[in-house]
């Protein structure tokens, strides 16, 4: 089956700045695909190109088989796009905002009420339908913006950092809605700087400075880290990173509040770590091997320190 989103060797520069270079990925129907990376990684440029707002310098890019440089109107009518700063009208109520976007997207008048009802089911915004959008909380605003993006029943959804600045509970509710949409067969491309949200996607591309560092299922990507990471807790006074940095085999030391994360090459066991620590400070500390986070993998990939098999 033809992928819903297809990007082949896409590059885009702004003046001397290369925003995206040689990006290739595709997204299947009904897939929830995440572009993960910090500011400046090229996420927004990629999304804006896919929704036909900017044109690529080079590459073959299509949405539902339609070329983004040629089929601009057709693509816009079947896609929903929620930019980082979605403009809701603060002086209109929740219901009026939905009606406004329905009219903008030429939704037939008699269908509007029913679609609104369906969207309320996702968003739980019905009790607030007469509240002015300007008076909604951050999380509710994001849900309303998403609802406005969905009013014309798009088959592909592009969300650019929809949960940035939103609190963790509202973020988790927002992702719940995305999973519901996915069940209905909507294809979703979402970007986020939050590494933890990546785990909620079917597949992700980790982007850094315009290129993909790694792509695939989230668990496959965390599996790329071959170095062992140990969490050390115990006597606060000795949890000083500069002390542990003296261990010759150590790859990195990171303080985390009340613990330290020590990274060692593959094959380094809990026991090896305990012995090293005892030799260094003459005390036993709690040593626990932990699974690498996506952030660990990101840093490992950028710095070329993910370790190699023995």
């Amino acid at each position: 089956m033809q992928p819903v989103i297809s990007v082949i060797n896409f590059s885009k520069s702004f003046g001397k700045t290369t925003a995206v270079k040689n990006l290739t990925f595709d997204v299947e129907k009904g897939e929830l695909f995440g572009l993960i990376g910090p500011d400046g990684a090229g996420k927004t440029t990629t999304i804006r190109t896919l929704v036909t707002l900017i044109s690529p310098d080079s590459g073959e890019i299509s949405v539902t088989g339609l070329n983004v440089s040629k089929s601009i109107r057709a693509i816009r009518s079947i896609t929903g796009y929620m930019p980082q700063r979605f403009s809701l009208y603060p002086d209109l109520s929740v219901r009026q905002n939905l009606n406004f976007f329905a009219n903008l997207f030429e939704v037939p008048k008699k269908e509007i009420a029913e679609r609104r009802k369906r969207l309320f089911k996702f968003s739980n915004l019905e009790p607030f339908s007469e509240r002015l959008a300007g008076q909604l909380s951050g999380g509710m605003k994001q849900k309303l913006a998403l609802s406005c993006t969905l009013i014309h029943n798009p088959v592909v959804l592009f969300l650019d950092e929809p949960t940035t600045g939103v609190d963790p509970v509202s973020r988790s509710e927002f992702w719940e809605i995305l999973r519901e949409l996915k069940k209905e067969g909507v294809t979703i491309l979402v970007s986020t700087p939050y590494m933890d949200e990546a785990l909620l996607c079917d597949r992700i591309a980790i982007m850094h400075e315009g290129s993909v560092l790694a792509m695939g299922k989230p668990e496959k990507i965390t599996g790329l880290m071959r170095n062992h990471i140990y969490k050390i807790t115990g006597n606060d006074l000795v949890l000083r990173s500069d002390v542990f940095a003296q261990i010759p085999e150590i790859i990195s030391v990171q303080s985390f509040g009340d613990s330290l994360h020590l990274t060692f090459p593959p094959g380094f066991s809990d026991e090896d770590v305990r012995i090293k620590i005892y030799g260094l400070i003459g005390q036993e500390l709690n040593v626990e091997r932990i699974a690498p986070s996506l952030e660990d993998v990101f840093i490992g990939l950028v710095e070329g320190k993910i370790g190699h098999a023995n």
């Binding site: 910090p38 940035t164 990101f298 840093i299 950028v302």
Partner: peptide, 17 residues
């Protein structure tokens, strides 16, 4: 450090410590 890349974030926290 919202939105900052993980390497800069860890460096920043090193300074905070």
């Amino acid at each position: 450090t919202g939105g900052v890349d993980p390497i800069s974030r860890r460096n920043f926290w090193r300074i905070i410590y």
